[in-house]
Design a protein around this nucleic acid. Structure first.
Lengths: 351, 351
DNA sequence: GTTATTTTTTAGAACGATCTAAATAGGGCG
DNA sequence: CGCCCTATTTAGATCGTTCTAAAAAATAAC
């Protein structure tokens, strides 16, 4: 015998409240929006009824009528990357504080999935999009699926290809070149002369910028960088550990490395350990991002702080501000970065 | 002189397409939904026009009319916690694959913020909610802001207070007791006799369950657990490092500890190092969660794998399945856990 | 008791889609 | 040619809100 179910109640709407209070829909709507037009007595009656029936505001219907939006889409490669997780937390914090809600999408670093995700998100009518593009994704395709009107904030990476001139997209970029330059200068000051740049995909814009900063500092110090001192890897711990061998294929081997990011640096530490080297004793290295782990690992990691949570907040603020003025020229913000010196950047052994 | 702007185009809607093709709204709507009713020739004409005008489907309007939803709300304490970040990634993966979109909300472990966040999310009309409750939040308040109809999947923690009987909420819980039991048994097999349970808030349900599993294993092995072998801390690295002293206040001090989770275990390692102890050599410890870091840290951390990404997928699948049958009785799923033995769980020195 | 003024309320048309039920268009057949 | 049947198309109501313009009620002024 089937169990008896509670009757399925329809959702309660403005109309139900209006009927119960014997006023019009319009009045209830005014009460909901705290309009001063409605009489104090009526207001109280209506509010009590809203409470009593457990009314839930239907923001989608309101947005439809008002032609507004109350959401922001956030599209990232991978939440499992702590840098992006922190960033997302920051975005959501600020977006929520502004009364908006965050729509999430992840691309897994695939331009095709990115297209699909953008296509799906856009149908839900977000007011704007914060996008950290997948590697290899291209401006015109993104533009195509977003339409020319959608406010967009690009974070962390540039898109390949040219932006149609009509796009007024904002950008929030880390000062990658400066960060790598700071790290390199620090290693040079420690006394290193043979310094490598380790990890990252050479074609990604952030890697190019970091390499450029590295080269700049090396050049200024009149230090040579042999071709095999530039080692590529996927920006993950595992692949970095694997790529460690390539670093010691060159002769003479480097005594220090500026790593593409913290994940790569941690992977390199692992690889060094497997070769019997002690990072922070007979090999120096620096990271980039200052993820939580950097301070905890042993030896603790000298790195570049980018304050991802604060970047998330900043990205949200920039985009929310843009919602008001969609037609103004897009701005490019470059955030300064900071060198955090810890134990991994030791002086060379035979100084 | 102000720059000339492109004219602000209204968004293109069904009506625009219908007008351009000289057909009715209804026909265009049918084309959008790939109905077999519409003539092949007409369909092609309409599709071309959709393309040409850059039409974007307004899912909110459709949902309003159809009384459906195409989103799932995900409410977590903190995305910056890698366990939850992985979980969120899994949820989003599965939710996206089902054609839904994820609405994000974070509570920062505060029941008040949780209420606010739920209140805001619910107005956007998600089809269901995945909630990992903030510590100390209570069932009836949550129920109050969600209404009795909303499908809910509780993850990881129970809510305080009693659930109204009308709620058909699903639960997805880790087998906390079994996990802690496995870890404890492993340490006992290694030869430890004085084992502590370290970290976590004693009032949280997950901590209680893990402690219970710990006690069960200890009791079965007829080992005593003095009161000061149960040490509390916030479930963070920093606070765990601080709480390390409490572990060695007791005499005789323990030779091993089952930690509340990996974050706490990593913090304890740090604290041990500051006392001149070497985790994995003269003190053994285990974690819980198997976060990415656990394998990379030195010594690598013996822990309990909960596969958070897969749990995220599972949570999404459970909730999506529930959308079809909102009135059926809620189910409680307990996922098995697995012991991952690594280097941190050494035998006692003077075995 | 009018009329003017202010305060409060409301009917009805939006918003952009879908659905129902009915209209129209083609074909085939006697 | 007229009738029936199937294939296509569509007018108009609807989802739950807000907006506009105007009506109704209360208050003030004379």
């Amino acid at each position: 015998m089937p169990s008896t179910h509670a009757p399925i109640r329809r959702k309660v709407t403005l109309i139900d409240i209006a009927a119960a209070c014997d006023v019009s829909r319009a009045t209830v709507s005014l009460v909901l929006r705290n309009s001063p037009l409605v009489n104090r007595h009526t207001r109280e009656r209506v509010q009590a009824e809203l409470q009593r029936q457990g009314y839930i505001y239907n923001r989608a219907a309101a947005n439809l009528r008002k032609r507004t939006s109350s959401s922001i889409a956030l599209v990232l490669n991978d939440l499992a990357n702590p840098f992006f997780a922190e960033f997302a937390a920051g975005v959501d914090e600020e977006v929520g504080a502004a009364g908006f809600v965050t729509l999430l999408g992840s691309t897994g670093e695939s331009p095709e999935r990115q297209q699909a995700v953008l296509g799906s998100l856009i149908e839900h009518g977000p007011g704007g999009i914060i996008l950290s593009p997948a590697e290899g994704s291209d401006a015109s395709r993104v533009m195509e699926s977003l339409g020319p009107q959608m406010p967009v904030l690009l974070f962390n990476r540039e898109l390949g290809g040219d932006l149609p001139a009509s796009a007024h997209w904002d950008r929030l970029m880390l000062d990658n070149a400066r960060g790598a330059e700071l790290a390199t200068m620090h290693l040079i000051e420690q006394g290193h002369r043979r310094i490598a740049f380790f990890g990252g995909h050479a074609q990604s814009s952030s890697c190019q910028q970091r390499r450029a900063g590295f080269m700049k500092a090396m050049k200024r110090a009149r230090l040579k960088v042999p071709g095999d001192y530039l080692v590529e890897s996927a920006p993950t711990r595992l692949d970095a550990a694997r790529a460690c061998d390539a670093l010691f294929a060159s002769d003479p081997a480097p005594t220090a490395a500026v790593c593409y990011n913290d994940a790569v640096a941690l992977g390199l530490m692992l690889g060094l350990g497997q070769r019997g080297l002690q990072p922070g004793r007979n090999f120096a290295l620096t990271g980039f991002d200052n993820i939580g782990e950097a301070a905890m690992v042993s030896p603790s990691l000298t790195t570049i702080s980018t304050a991802p949570r604060e970047r998330g907040r900043q990205a949200a603020r920039l985009l929310l501000a843009r919602l008001g003025h969609p037609q103004e020229r897009g701005e490019r913000t470059i955030v300064p970065v900071e060198l955090i010196v810890r134990d991994s950047s030791c002086p060379p052994l035979a100084a």
